[in-house]
Design a protein around this nucleic acid. Sequence first.
RNA 1: UGGCCUAUGGUGUAAUUGGCAACACAGCUGGUUUUGGUCCAGUCGUUCUAGGUUCGAGUCCUAGUAGGCCAACCA
Length: 560
Amino acid sequence: MAEEEKSLNFIEHIIEDDLKEGFDKEKLRFRFPPEPNGYLHIGHASSICLNFGLGEKYDAPVNLRFDDTNPAKEEQEYVDAIKRDVEWLGYKWSEVRYASDYFQQLFDWAVEFIKNGKAYVDSQTSEEIAAQKGTPTTPGTDSPYRNRSVEENLDLFQRMKNGEFESGTHVLRAKIDMSSSNMLMRDPIMYRILHKAHHRTNTDWCIYPMYDWTHGESDYIEQVSHSFCTLEFAMHRELYNWFLEQVSNPNQVQPKQREFARRNLSHTIVSKRKLLRLVEEGIVNGWDDPRMPTISGLRRRGYTPESIKNFVKTIGIAKRENLIDVSLLEFHAREDLNKKAPRIMAVLDPLKVVITNYPENTDEYVDSENNPEDEVLTYRKVPFSREIYIEKEDFREEANRKFFRLKLGGEVRLKNAYIIKAEKAIKDEDGNIIEVHCTYDPLSKSGSGTEESKRKVKGTLHWVSIKDAKEVEVREYDRLFTEAEPDRHEGKDFLEFVNPDSLRVIKGYVEPSVEEAKIGDHFQFQRIGYFNVDPDSTNEKLVFNKTVGLRDSWAKIDKS
RNA sequence: UGGCCUAUGGUGUAAUUGGCAACACAGCUGGUUUUGGUCCAGUCGUUCUAGGUUCGAGUCCUAGUAGGCCAACCA
């Protein structure tokens, strides 16, 4: 297999440079570090593909590490969902780790900090500490507790751990520099008291380490060589390195943090906090609602792992601001599904057609290709009959030459079946067309080899035999937000831009072969789009999600 | 009145590290087609600005400009 990819992203350049400078390839090690406080979304897919992709490229281990230092927000449900999503994308982690695995080690190191005068217990309120922190343009001031004795600090810290104090009464702070231009270096908090059960350590601890104190040390413990995170952590790097210097042994790998820009997708949001609001406020039906940009939502919508991975590969990784149009994601869904999804016929907005010269009671089946993209074509039998449904929009009483579909006096081919001619439109008392009478050419049957079957007619329509069709529920989705960047309108809440018409539930009529469909199966409804079977389906009624429509160049012509 | 980061077609990302600006998507023109799908061909650029170094600058230097991030006992 010849791989042509030669251009590297800036992260790969960093690794290549390190290798060139003598870093041992065998020591390359990565990690994907989600906080289990929500479901993974399309933005995380970039990080997952980056880290696990690097693991595959360099044959290096990649840990799945849960950053579980805040029991107030984290839950086992999220741990399970995250594992499921990473596996579904097709990646294998070396080990599952938890930051909470390191609580004891972190505590022991913190005690060393105190003994070395690198940390102290501050007994002020969070407001007081915030006030002393200064601002980005003015330096902070020292806490009155900054110079407590080692003995007092040790005693206090131990009693914090023992649960002798109320939440919020004391914190352990690193003693660094209150006048640093980097606010994070102004004596950052290492521990806070939180009397809250943790999803893994239960009530073993009532002090919990903060992110900055935990993350880099976890990387170090796991001997992660390259630790990638998003741009907003760039300022944390100085602190990451400072903490590392205090504990690290020079013979060990010194993890290197580097930052990349988060990917922003148009017409949606990629923020767990905001996604949680959509779920909690009932705007969507859960984290896996097919309108959600979560991995589980996309899966339910009908996206394949390959389509997501190809999308991520295409958008790449860099450091600049970006807004990726959601249509690119849709392109990758079509690209993958075009190869994989079997074609079937379904009518979603039915108009009855009666073929007046077709015999009343016959059982005729026509051969239909399952997928014209397959190298070896396979076929199935589809029942044809005197009364069929076509799409309402495929018939007009009158139309110009650009309209390739059925019009009075005009001919079209019924896909895989016969050429028909529209003779008469039947209307109700309000003038709505409720039925079209046609005649067919019995010699024009597809594949029969006759002269008539080879005739070229401009339009080809999909159809279903009314007596054989299966009624199904079809859920059509539109973008969840009406604005490209719903969370970037100053002074406005992103929920103001929720698209009220993002879900449309309709009835559809599908050829009988769908009876064998299983949950998750993908199909192309010919001339319409890609659909998959939703888990809400029952034995009585199948439910389909519209993943994405086919490209529709007619829609553009018709509009002009 | 600070610090850190970024700037390449409509969008996203490249450019063998100083050597003809490329790829994908979108758009537009055509062609093929029993899916107005797929596929194929063509088309679409003052590399943020101004100076400078150089035979040669997207790449290096200087000065601007624009945008993002930084003051949670969140991650």
